[in-house]
Nucleic acid binder design. Sequence first.
DNA 1: ATTGACCTTCACGTTGCGTAAAGGTGTATA
DNA 2: TATACACCTTTACGCAACGTGAAGGTCAAT
Lengths: 254, 254
Amino acid sequence: MEYTIQKLARIAGISTRTLRYYEEIGIIKPARIKSSGYRIYGQAEVNCLQQVLFYKELGFKLEVIKEILMSPSFNEAKALKEHHEKLLDKRKQLDLLISNVEKTIALKEGRMTMTDQEKFEGFKKKLIEENERKYGKEIREKYSEDTINKSNEKLLNMTQEEYEEAIRLGNEVTSTLAEAFQTGDPGSDLAQKAADLHRQWLTHFWGRYSKEAHAGLAQMYVDDERFRVYYDEKQPGTAEFLRDAILIYAGVKK
Amino acid sequence: MEYTIQKLARIAGISTRTLRYYEEIGIIKPARIKSSGYRIYGQAEVNCLQQVLFYKELGFKLEVIKEILMSPSFNEAKALKEHHEKLLDKRKQLDLLISNVEKTIALKEGRMTMTDQEKFEGFKKKLIEENERKYGKEIREKYSEDTINKSNEKLLNMTQEEYEEAIRLGNEVTSTLAEAFQTGDPGSDLAQKAADLHRQWLTHFWGRYSKEAHAGLAQMYVDDERFRVYYDEKQPGTAEFLRDAILIYAGVKK
DNA sequence: ATTGACCTTCACGTTGCGTAAAGGTGTATA
DNA sequence: TATACACCTTTACGCAACGTGAAGGTCAAT
């Protein structure tokens, strides 16, 4: 049986380039070459190629395969064992690498969360300090020490996820409120939704909820200039609107 | 602190070529370049290089390292985990390869020893059969059945190493004998050495040694044409010479 | 004669540098 | 000041095992 280069490549499952390359480095030569220059391979070449591919699958370098196949005196058993040793060394190296990468991942993860934790903790503390500095005295006067302390404590004990949820809720309150403000009606569904969101937001900081406290806070939003500015910033009257919505929500007003 | 390319290479433990290559592929650029064209690196570059080498040790490709270091938004954790996955895949591949090589070694060894064993066993059996066919009757007449059977049994139980040792000894007997034959004196040191080697050779086939049996065998080498031809083949008179040497060695002659 | 599949050689690209070659620069010393 | 010597520069080939064209010739069938 005779094969053209492509036929041999197909039965061997390799490319014609590979066959030409093998010829180039002297591993397999065609049985003969036609006058047209076409390579013609015979059965012997098929067998040889089989051997080559076998050793290649075992990860031998082509130069070594060439040596093995070219000189029958070549100690194949020795070559196999040496190759085996080399592969074991390679695996050792690889294991070391993997272990190092794993260590790095653990370390980075540790440091990341550490860093983030630190940042987060620092952020929360700063928030509380700022609250204290800004509103401390007055709030402690208006609300019981207990409420404030619990609020701060809760803040400090919040996980990052909880914190982010609280922030998200806060933003939702703001946006819903802005939208509801357009209706002009603190009793409207949207305004009541804003009030509800505000309650949810509040419970993230206050341990428990009471209509009275909620209503009281709402009133404070109007009474205290600093809070009022925060809400009125974009739309004057928003603080008052929120207070009314909350009062309705809390059932102290209709 | 400013560094020339070689100084930086030295503190980093790499070559200047490597630094220039890193510059070529856009990983590290010198802080500035002097009018002479000399590259000058600063502290920032030292730090950057440190990062590069760190990732390189973890087996990252330079292109990936570049991405990691160039864009701070790059998800390093993800890159590490992907890399980790790739390394695990690589190890799996390697394990498979090693297992295949091991199987091949076992197979080849198995086949080799099997083949050799088979060859060897067959060879031994043929030897005995031949012995029986050639000399059987007569030898069984001259020596006891017991001696013959024991000899054959011993032959069959010989390991390949023992067998090869016996062959080797046999060859040594022949060569030493040929050399000793030149002296013309069966009592010479060399002839006695040949006799001793012959005894050693003999004990490989006979379980135990006795001067009498040795002397008897020696006599047979002369009396039996077939044995005599074997020894006299290269030098006529060798069989007789060996017999005399053995008789002296065994102490039955002086 | 033309198509379309197949063949040829030549040659560049891949990865991470090693290793020259050919020639300019910096600095210490005779 | 000349010179030696260490250091610098750019350019470019080499490595392993092919992949991937490009440019052009061959074969078999229509």
